[in-house]
Amino acid sequence: MDNDLLLISDYLAGDISPEDQSLVERRLLEDPVFEDQFQQRKAEIEIIRAADRARVKEGLRQQLTQEKTPIRFMSSWWIPIAIAASIAIFLLILLPNSSPGPQQLAMSYLEPMPIATSRGAEVGSDERLKRAFSLYQQGNYAAALPELEELLAQIPENEQIALLVANAYSQTGRFDKSISLYQPWDHSSPYWDVVEWNLALALVLEDRLKEAIPLLTQISEGNHFKAKQAAKLLSELE
């Protein structure tokens, strides 16, 4: 047994005579017990290789982040959006002492949806889902949207993805679309509190204050997880 182990270890180290190499390869074909042992030893080597790669990759990632090296490159479709965003920021700066409007106020409350990590890890085995989640988490909502919508079309009952789609619409300024997704939401859904708050924000952002204010009042008066924020936003809107 020890001889087999060392023979395999030599083979995997690439430090083996041609005769022993042929012996290993022949036994792999003829001896299932030996083949099983070989596969296990090979898997162990792959595990430590993968762990080493992960360590180096993480180190590289951290180093680039610390140095603030721009890892991202703008593809051409993004440039007009970036220019528009810069102009918007520039105009905001140029508006001295003007009190923020309802939209600006509500915008400061708008947050990305958290992605449940336990489910995220589980569903993350699919490349498309992983890509969509990753784009969303990076704040690249415009690129995440088509991916998420395609996923939602395949699994329309998945409320988490539906929430991400609706929120991504809000994040990209298409509040009418997000409202149309939030409004028919089932009130008994476990996500209803989140939906209600995001719907209220989208209504403010779409300048539909007549609908937004009663909803914000309802949130602020109830046992809602955003009750305090709703009350604060209401007072700011007044």
Partner: peptide, 17 residues
């Protein structure tokens, strides 16, 4: 997507190493 390209380059650098 850009992040896939970045990831591929990182993996390529690991193989280079």
């Amino acid at each position: 997507p850009t992040e896939d390209a970045e990831d591929l380059l990182m993996d390529a650098i690991l193989i280079f190493r």
